[in-house]
Every structure is written in structure tokens, then in C-alpha cells.
């Protein structure tokens, strides 16, 4: 009886220490060098190589793709929509898109129905955005949102999440940039806070400026999707950094088998928040410590 037990223990140990299946060669295609894409590859290389994966750089659409590296790789990682489009044009290797907005990923996937492709998207789940609002401002009950053409499909998801969170959604749809002032005024008049969505129409620099100016006028804080938006003047934002996305990808790789089975399209489980203290003070809001807020949000998601 001792031998089989020992065998079992050995098997378990080997499963724990050296997952037999998990070392892969990954070809990374970036939309362009530098900036956030660079931060992503660096994080991926550090985390991936720790897990035994081989990370190779297979070019950018601008400087050309290394098709040899792509065809040899177990998985292609395309960072950004230009990279994804370039990869899908030349290869049918399993591909995971990262650093991409959900709506853009869906558009590209529809154009390439036969591609084996999934994504870790930048968009934060509706529940997470609302949880941020509720955690930062527990008294806020009416949440305003402006939907542009690129984000109109998110309305039902936000409606559902709002119903679960116990807040009311005050939505306004825009079809052109000229609709913004009126729609903004209507939302700010009836909502306690405004969630800014990453829509080209609603979050262009000009529109973001108008939204923030309006938000101060009505004393309604803006909750946004990026650190830059908080620097510009939003009260708070929840977002996944390039490192969060790389960590999500590596965690999936570490747990996957050969041949690779692509994950479902999803947002990273890890995320970060940012708070603009000056805006909080100007709007006379008493907001807790960032770490405590982040812990509360993370704890809420684990439940």
C-alpha cells in the first residue's frame, strides 16, 4: 500500500512544482513601439519568463511582422487593434488580443469569423465601475452615463449592473459631437455622479474638457477609466494597467494545457484605482484612503 501512495505524492508534487504543460513560446506583436505597449511587453517578459515561457518580439504593423516567429509560436499576443488586424491578415495561429477596447475587438472579430482569437480587454466590467462609485460615494444613487455610437451596446450591461447594485442609471445617447452640451446638461441635472465611458465621441480631448467643466459647474464628480482622465480632473477612475494585463495573460498561460484552449473574452481580474484629491476637496467630498478603497473593491469582487 505504501508504493501507490508514494507514487501519488510524487505525482502531486510534480504537478505542483513543474506543470508539465505550461512552457510556451509566445510571439508578441505591438501596435507600435514605446508608451503603454512597451510597458506591457516588459511586464509580460518579466512575468512570462519567470513561468518558463519564451517571449519573442514579432514586430509592429509599421516595421513589418516576422511571420516565421508568428507561425512557430504556440500563441500570438497582439497588443492593440492595429496589431490584431495585422496578425489576423497574415496568420491563423491562436491569438489573444490585449490592450484593446471591447467594441474594437468585436468589430475585428466579426470581420475575421474563422480566426482563433480571444481577448483580455481594457474595458472594466460594469459591476466594477459601479462598485467604485458606491465605494467612494456610498450616498450616490443616480449614476449618469453618456453613450456614444461605440458604447451604445453597453447600456443594457450597465442597466443590469445598476439594478444589482441598487443605483439608478440616467443615460443619454449622443449621435454627433454637437449633442454633447445638451445631453451633458440633462444628465448632470438629474444624476449624482457621471461615469465617463471610453467612447471616441464622448471622451475626445474636447469632449472630456466639456464634461469636466460641466461636472464642476453642477458639482457632480466624474468617474473615469484611466489615470489620465483623473489627472485631467475626474474624481476617480478604475483601470487595468499594462502590468495588470500582462499578469492576467501569464496567469492564464500558467494554467493552460497543450494544445492551448483560448480563454473567453474578459477584463483583467486585477485592477487599480486613482483619486484626484484636489477635485475631491473642491467638490467638498470626504473620501477615504486609496489603499482601503482598493481593498474594499477587491474584497467585494472575491465574494
Amino acid at each position: 500500500m505504501i508504493r501507490p501512495l508514494r507514487l501519488l505524492a510524487l505525482f502531486l508534487l510534480s504537478a505542483l512544482w513543474a506543470p508539465a504543460t505550461s512552457a510556451h513560446e509566445i510571439a508578441v506583436v505591438l501596435s507600435q513601439q514605446g508608451g503603454a505597449y512597451q510597458a506591457f511587453t516588459e511586464a509580460l517578459r518579466t512575468l512570462g519568463e519567470r513561468g518558463g515561457h519564451r517571449i519573442v518580439h514579432a514586430g509592429t504593423p509599421g516595421e513589418g511582422l516576422d511571420q516565421q516567429l508568428i507561425n512557430r509560436a504556440a500563441l500570438v499576443v497582439a497588443a492593440g487593434s492595429p496589431a490584431l488586424e495585422a496578425v489576423l491578415q497574415g496568420s491563423r495561429r491562436p491569438t489573444v488580443a490585449v490592450m484593446i477596447a471591447r467594441n474594437q475587438f468585436e468589430t475585428i472579430r466579426q470581420r475575421n469569423p474563422e480566426a482563433t482569437v480571444s481577448a483580455i480587454v481594457l474595458d472594466q466590467p460594469a459591476e466594477r465601475q459601479l462598485a467604485l462609485v458606491r465605494t467612494v460615494l456610498p450616498d450616490a444613487t443616480r449614476v449618469g452615463v453618456l453613450f456614444g455610437p461605440a458604447t451604445a451596446t453597453l447600456e443594457s450591461a450597465l442597466e443590469g449592473a445598476a439594478a444589482n447594485t441598487g443605483v439608478r442609471l440616467v443615460g443619454q445617447r449622443l449621435t454627433t459631437a454637437n449633442d454633447l452640451p445638451q445631453a451633458l446638461e440633462r444628465v448632470l441635472r438629474s444624476a449624482d455622479v457621471l461615469i465617463a465611458l471610453p467612447d471616441p465621441l464622448v471622451s475626445s480631448p474636447t469632449a472630456a474638457r466639456a464634461i469636466l467643466l460641466g461636472s464642476y459647474r453642477y458639482q457632480r464628480p466624474v468617474f473615469a477609466y484611466s489615470q489620465a482622465y483623473v489627472d485631467a480632473g475626474a474624481l476617480a477612475a478604475v483601470f487595468s494597467t499594462p502590468a495588470d494585463i500582462a499578469a492576467e495573460l501569464v496567469a492564464w498561460l500558467d494554467g493552460s494545457t497543450t494544445p492551448l484552449r483560448l480563454p473567453a473574452v474578459r477584463a483583467p481580474r486585477s485592477f487599480d484605482i486613482a483619486i484626484n484629491r484636489q477635485v475631491a476637496r473642491a467638490l467638498n467630498l470626504d473620501i477615504g484612503d486609496e489603499t482601503a478603497l482598493l481593498d474594499a473593491l477587491r474584497a467585494g469582487e472575491r465574494q
Binding site: 508608451g35 503603454a36 492593440g80 487593434s81 490592450m99 484593446i100 477596447a101 467594441n103 474594437q104 481594457l122 461605440a150 471610453p198 467612447d199 471616441p200 471622451s203 480631448p205 472630456a208 474638457r209 469636466l212 467643466l213 464642476y216 477609466y225 484611466s226 489620465a228 482622465y229 489627472d231 485631467a232 480632473g233 483601470f239 484626484n276 484636489q278 477635485v279 473642491a282
Partner: peptide, 14 residues
């Protein structure tokens, strides 16, 4: 484009 929005700079309004 949408995914650029997540990492693009915005004018400092505040």
C-alpha cells in the same frame, strides 16, 4: 480609436 483612449493624455482641466 477606442483603445487609444485608455492610455491617451487629456488636457488638464482641474
Amino acid at each position: 480609436a477606442s483603445d487609444d483612449l485608455f492610455f491617451s493624455e487629456l488636457p488638464i482641466v482641474a
